[in-house]
Each structure stands twice: as C-alpha cells, then as structure tokens.
C-alpha cells in the first residue's frame, strides 16, 4: 500500500534572493511517512522558529519545499492532476490555530460544514447533508440546535474550534494536521477539545499530527513526539520517555522550563553554554551548540546525525555517539503504533 503522505528530505529556506543576503533555514532535511493504518497520533513540538509551522504548510501543500519533495500516495504534490488534488484535499484535513479568523463573518457557521460536503460530493441530498452535520456536531459534544444557523460571533471560541474539529472529521479524511488547535482557546476547555480530538481520530481511523509548543498536552494525547529545534529534529520517539527522560539537551531545557503545578517541582534555569559552545558558529555544526552546556569540539564541526538510543528513540546529539545512527530515511522508523485499536468495526 502506498504511503498516504510522505516528506522526503524536505528543506525550506527563506530569503537568499537577489537582494537578501541572509537566508533562514526554516526546515532542514526532514523526512517522514504518515499512514492511517493503524491511525497514529504524532506531536511535533517546538518553539517559535522551530519550523513546525513551516512543516505544516509544506505537508499541506501550501508551500513548496526548496529541496526534497512531498508525496501524496506516491505522487509529488506539485504534479497532481485536478482530481488527484481534490482527493488530496479530502484525505488530508486541517485544523487551524485561530478560531476567529477561520470563519467568514458573512456566513453562518453552517457554511464551513456544507462547503466541503458539497465540494467533495459527500451528501446525496440536503437532508443527508443535515444528517451528517448533526452527527458530526454531536460527536464533538455540541448541540446542533444551538450551533447550526448561528453566526460565528454568536458562538464562543471553544465552540467555534469544536465546529472546526467536527468539520475536519466530517469528510472522513485519513489524516488531520492540527496546527496549535487549542492555543487560542480558553484554558479550561483545552483538555476537553483535545480529548475529543484524540478519541475521535482513533475511532474513525484518522491519523493526527498535532503541532504545538505545549509539551504537556503533546504528551497527554500523542503516541509519538518529535522535538524540533531551528528546523532540525532534536529528538523523537515514543511520547512518554521523550518527555520523562529527555535526552537531547534542548529537550531537557524545554521540559525543565515547564511550570508544573506542583510547588515541589521547581522549574529550572537554563544552564549557561559550555566554553566551547559559547564560541560556536550557529551556521555550522549543531544548531544548539551556542546554548549547550555540554557542547564539545565535535559539535562545532558537523551537525549531529540522529543516534538511535533505543528501539523507539532518536536524539541528534553527540552525547550519544556510541549509539548507532538511524539508517537513512524517514523519522517514523522509530515510532510506535498505538497499543489499543479503538476503531469502530467496519460495517
């Protein structure tokens, strides 16, 4: 079976045109294969400048990679025919960060639900469409009678984002890419919305890529986590160990900086970079070296490859140079499949 969506050695570089001397490498040689059999939830965690948003845009086909390619069912996104493109749009859905901007104020919220149903030909009649919409809204915990027919400003941010989740599932995609889906939603609702996203994607056999800066929620709902730093993978693997025993110095910094709601677990200050690290040139070698308390000479020469420290873990750090390097290829080689298959039996 051909892989649903695949990124092969994708890099995205901004700038460097005729008038711009400075280039920014937003994404650096990233490869991944995503399928939905079984459905897997992968979190991509990073701070601003990590490249996570660029990754989303590249996977969704909104931006073209500078190097490498993104393939849908084996075909490069840039060379899809019109029908193939429609199919791609249906199979790969998205949930955006901003629950306000994503609604056209001119229309009622029904518009965001009816449009994909119509364009993808999923409803046989008006009645059928209404049925599908009602089902989808109920699945995310909304009451259709209180939601349909309303204008966006009449719903709260949390409700609007739930409608977005309903919309993403409505078309029965194979993959949903959620870009910071709850960061603009009230804190008290985040857990509920993420929970429903997690259970629904498992139930409907949809894989999920959850892009966020919040390690805690990433840990809570994902099977696997990828930690990005300045466009490169710092660490990746099964969610629990990555978060509880982080290996890469950046992951450790990240986990240590999280304010935990426990007065006994004090957040830790960033340790100063080692003497070697302070003299590092970020353009060559490991990107984290200038901040790394463990930086060594070898870190300045070449960017570290991904060392596989465990069946389900890689870290791009010379601290682990005794471990074998990951064979050339996509990062998902170290991913786990979820333990339980919650998919409803096909009927």
């Amino acid at each position: 079976m051909t892989t649903l969506l695949e990124a092969r050695r994708v890099s995205k570089i901004f700038g460097g045109g005729l008038f711009e001397k400075e280039t920014t490498v937003a994404l650096d040689d990233f490869s991944i294969r995503i399928d939905n059999d079984p459905p897997v939830i992968t979190a991509v965690v990073g701070e601003s400048g990590s490249g996570k948003t660029t990754l989303a845009r590249v996977l969704l086909g909104e931006t073209e990679p500078t190097q490498g390619e993104v393939r849908y069912l084996g075909k490069d996104l840039r060379s899809l025919s019109r029908d193939e493109r429609q199919s791609f749009r249906r199979d790969v859905q998205v949930i955006f960060q901003d629950p306000y901007e994503v609604y056209n104020p001119f229309y009622r919220i029904d518009h965001v639900l009816t449009t994909p149903l119509t364009k993808f030909g999923l409803a046989k009649s008006r009645g059928h469409a209404r049925e599908l919409m009602t089902e989808a809204l109920q699945a995310v915990g909304l009451r259709p009678e209180e939601t349909l027919g309303r204008y966006p400003h009449q719903l709260s941010g949390g409700q609007r984002q739930r409608v977005m989740v309903a919309r993403a599932l409505l078309v029965r995609p194979r993959l949903i890419i959620a870009d910071e889906p709850v960061s603009m939603v009230d804190a008290s609702l985040r857990a509920t919305i993420l929970d429903s996203l997690q259970s629904l994607t498992r139930e409907f056999g949809v894989s999920l890529i959850y892009i966020t800066h919040d390690l805690i929620t990433a840990f809570q709902i994902s099977d696997n986590i990828i930690v990005l730093y300045r466009g490169s993978v710092a660490e990746a693997g099964r969610a629990e160990p990555v978060v509880q025993q982080p290996e890469h110095p950046y992951s450790r910094l990240l986990v240590g900086s999280i304010p935990q709601p426990d007065p006994d677990r004090v957040w830790s200050a960033e340790q100063p970079a080692s003497a070697v690290g302070r003299g590092a040139n970020p353009a060559v070698g490991c990107k984290f070296a200038p901040r790394c308390p463990f930086a060594m000479e070898m870190c300045l020469e070449n960017h570290p490859p991904l060392f596989q420290t465990d069946d389900h873990r890689v870290a791009a750090c010379y601290l682990y140079r005794d471990a074998p390097t990951l064979p050339e290829g996509p990062i998902d080689q170290v991913f786990v499949k979820p333990a339980i298959d919650l998919r409803a039996p096909a009927d």
Partner: peptide, 28 residues
C-alpha cells in the same frame, strides 16, 4: 496546591494535566 479547600479549587487542581501520567483529563 497541596490541600485545596473550595470545591472549585479542588476540581481545578484535579483537572490539571501532568507530565507524569497519561490519564483521563476531566474538565469541570
């Protein structure tokens, strides 16, 4: 945090997601 008294505080603290355990996170 150690001993919330008001029921709302208790529910609030109980619903906080942690890095220790994956678990069902019930909102209030």
């Amino acid at each position: 945090f150690k001993d919330p008294m008001h029921p709302y505080s208790r529910l609030l603290i109980a619903s906080l997601p942690s890095l220790e355990r994956k678990g069902s996170r019930r909102g209030i």
